[in-house]
Computed example of a mutant assay.
Amino acid sequence: MSIEMLLLILLNLIGVFVCHSIAKSRGSRHVAFWSAMGALFGPLAIPFLLIFVRGAK
């Protein structure tokens, strides 16, 4: 496995963790959904999460 592939996998895992953490901290009922979006789209899912999930009131 090349270093580039390992880097992409690492970035994807970081995206999953960040999406999960942000969704949980903002009180989303769909934490698993946002974690899956992080797995599918990696760091590109983070801006959508920030836009579409409202903060806890």
Rank of each mutant, 00 (worst) to 15 (best):
V16Y: 00
V16L: 05
V16E: 01
F17Y: 13
C19Q: 05
C19S: 04
C19K: 02
C19V: 02
H20I: 14
H20W: 15
I22R: 03
A23L: 03
A23Q: 05
K24M: 10
S25T: 14
S25C: 12
R26H: 02
R26L: 05
G27T: 13
G27W: 06
S28R: 00
S28A: 02
S28L: 00
V31Q: 04
A32K: 07
F33E: 00
W34L: 00
W34H: 02
S35N: 10
S35M: 09
G38H: 01
A39K: 12
A39S: 09
A39W: 13
L40N: 13
L40F: 08
L40T: 12
F41K: 13
G42T: 02
G42V: 01
G42M: 03
G42K: 06
P43C: 07
P43I: 13
P43Y: 13
P43V: 07
P43M: 11
L44D: 05
L44E: 09
L44V: 09
A45T: 09
A45L: 03
A45K: 06
I46D: 00
I46L: 00
P47L: 09
P47V: 15
P47T: 13
P47K: 13
I51A: 10
F52Q: 13
F52D: 09
V53Y: 06
R54L: 08
R54S: 13
G55F: 07
G55W: 09
